[in-house]
């Protein structure tokens, strides 16, 4: 494959990874000061910090591969809805704390497996980012798995809330593991993993945790698609409006 074509694919991949981290980090950070207990304020801030840090690496690489002089900040703050490549799962609203935790868990399980596979990516810069990120995400997954188990198998109310969260969010998980032409081409040249393999490992981990949590995976949900192609939910534009406000209101200013 010619270098330009490979770079283009790697850029698209970095955007997807970066946008997932950015949008999830953005949402998790909104909990600061509003969590159910002080220790959770601190833990969520940690997760958000890790994700924003990873965003800088991924969007930095995407900007570099694009080679048009844009920065990671330009990509984060000056793209519109249709140019974002994150999965639908991470843009789902915070909801109650159960929704936030379930979203985190379903994403962490995927994130961890993808990053682990990326350690042997043929694109060195991608492998390097994965190496830094996987340490943080290992902990994210440990934490979210543990909390899903405790709350699922906790009180009647916590069980009900976690089950509702799972029912609501399940339909956004399939997209992460359904390859499009970009994913297929990336897997072929060894830049990114085969998503079919990720799906098997993901299902194994998620099923085990949900079983221990006494939660039931919803049957027959239609798996929504669109995030990778820039087809997002109605709330997404509002999320961007909040996030991009200063860069949009004061074009060209530095901060």
């Amino acid at each position: 494959m010619p270098k330009a074509a490979k770079d283009n694919l790697a850029m698209e991949f970095s955007l997807r990874m970066g946008d997932n981290c950015l949008i999830l980090g953005q949402q998790v950070a909104a909990w600061c000061g509003h969590a159910p207990v002080l220790e959770e304020d601190i833990a969520l801030a940690n997760t958000a910090l890790d994700l924003i840090g990873q965003t800088k690496f991924w969007l930095g690489l995407a900007a570099e591969l694009e080679g048009e002089g844009r920065s990671a900040d330009d990509l984060a703050f000056l793209r519109d809805v249709r140019a974002f490549r994150n999965g639908l799962l991470v843009e789902q609203p915070n909801g109650d704390f159960g929704q936030t935790l379930m979203r985190q868990f379903l994403f962490d399980a995927w994130h961890y497996l993808v990053l682990t596979a990326l350690l042997s990516s043929t694109e060195k810069r991608i492998a390097e980012i994965a190496e830094k990120a996987v340490k943080e995400v290992t902990y994210h997954l440990e934490r979210s798995s543990d909390l899903v188990i405790r709350l699922g198998d906790g009180s009647a109310e916590s069980h009900a809330r976690m089950q509702t969260a799972l029912d609501d969010l399940w339909r956004f998980t399939g997209e992460l593991m359904t390859p499009d032409s970009v994913d297929e081409a990336l897997a072929e040249i060894g830049v990114a993993p085969d998503l079919g393999r990720i799906e098997k490992q993901w299902a194994e981990h998620v099923r085990a945790v949900l079983q221990e949590a006494t939660l039931t995976i919803p049957e027959g949900a239609y798996m929504q698609q669109g995030g990778k192609a820039g087809l997002h939910s109605e709330a997404f534009g509002h999320l961007l409006a909040d996030m991009q406000f200063l860069q949009r209101a004061y074009p060209g200013a530095t901060w």
Partner: peptide
């Protein structure tokens, strides 16, 4: 805001206690 965080989080704290 502090009261809302505390009240909304009651089920979370209770759930963890119930699990323990």
């Amino acid at each position: 805001a502090r009261n809302k965080a505390w009240d909304d989080g009651a089920w979370f704290r209770d759930g963890l206690m119930a699990y323990a």
